[in-house]
Write a protein that binds this DNA or RNA. Structure first.
Lengths: 205, 205
DNA sequence: GCCCCGCATATACACTCGTATAGCACAATG
DNA sequence: CATTGTGCTATACGAGTGTATATGCGGGGC
């Protein structure tokens, strides 16, 4: 009789909980938080509606849990980038994406959608992404790889644009380009242009 | 007696219609299509619920009308950019934004949200934005302002990233930077960095 | 003067939403 | 063996959804 309210969360590895989190992440990524109902998520996860309440307390609780998971994954996935520096690190990061993006595509697309809907979780995600970019710029600066008199804050912001850009336009890529932003030919062409643009620009002064 | 179904749309300048379109645009931009109900939109517009059906036929019809309006505004707002070329044109475009963004902020924020929800209207918006960027690159190329051996397609894509980037992160800007992406200090700092990065890059080769 | 039609309102309907409650099977623990 | 608690299901409730229908008012053309 109501001895534990709110999220119980005792066992985080219950199969139903994991299925709900995965299904919610996928569906929210596709149609947004308000665009998907709990019944559809439960059906997709192969569990009953009531289980959402058991594990997450409410729909917002489910989102919070997904936000937390995705934030952790983003940190993990970009950790390797921060250990390197220079334009080579960027190409390496983009090429690494070829490995993990097929597997973690849902995480990436959820992060993309989260950036649209302003919530505490999405603000935290944004702050994390910006921190990653700032750290990359600082690492490069310490190693003397930054050109002199560069506005480091805006360099970080532009880096952020270029990293979230492909994710943002990914849903429109197939009609517009005939292939995914994360397909092999797109990745390599992007790599070539990125290195060039970051080190030399592309317009004449 | 049901002689005309669907959207009637005879008079596009009925005051109620305009109010509904404005209110829908603003609310959809803030919370997404599924996140807002017709009753709230009608209340915000100061008209009755049924008027949506009279003018737009359905909620989807309302979105279609908003999409069309926003697409036209985007075309109009970026028309001036296309007449110029070089890095100077970009700074001019960004500075022009200082004029029209306060006034057309809702249009911009709706376009931002539209890029999240994949619909025919949002695909058309994306195609339009990409076309604008491609045309800018081609204009620059014809005038000899492009560096040699530049991948023009990816130059256009990166230009697109840098133009939608500020809109995407605008909702997180105040907590993260203390000011809007479209405030005067941000615009001028961005201008300085953009010209530099586009003509010389910011990393050492 | 009548009629029709464009603009607008009010109200009802069927459905879906998130949430709440009651209960079941089963493993671990005393 | 009885008890406890966890993971889970089934079902009900009230509020809110988009859509449909019926109606009112006011101006221009026959």
């Amino acid at each position: 009789m109501a001895k534990r309210l709110e999220t119980r969360n005792g066992g985080e590895d219950a199969p139903g909980r994991r299925h709900l989190l995965d299904a919610g992440m996928r569906l929210f990524a596709e149609r947004g938080f308000a665009g998907v109902g709990l019944r559809e998520i439960a059906a997709e996860a192969g569990v009953s509606l009531g289980l959402v309440r058991t594990h997450f307390g409410s729909k917002d609780g489910l989102r919070d849990a997904i936000d937390e998971y995705v934030l952790g994954e983003i940190k993990r996935l970009y950790a390797t980038v921060l250990e390197h520096s220079g334009a080579g690190a960027l190409t390496k990061a983009v090429e690494d994406a070829l490995d993990w993006i097929p597997r973690d595509r849902v995480v990436l697309m959820y992060a993309r959608m989260a950036l649209m809907e302003k919530t505490p979780g999405s603000q935290a995600l944004f702050d994390q992404l910006l921190a990653i970019m700032r750290q990359f710029i600082e690492t490069n600066a310490k190693r003397g790889l930054l050109q002199p008199d560069v506005d480091r804050e805006w360099a970080a912001i532009y880096l952020l644009f270029d990293f979230i850009g492909p994710a943002i336009i990914e849903p429109f890529a197939k009609p517009a380009f005939g292939k995914s932003m994360y397909s092999k030919p797109m990745i390599s062409a992007r790599n070539a242009f990125m290195v060039r643009a970051f080190t030399r620009g592309f317009l004449k002064g």
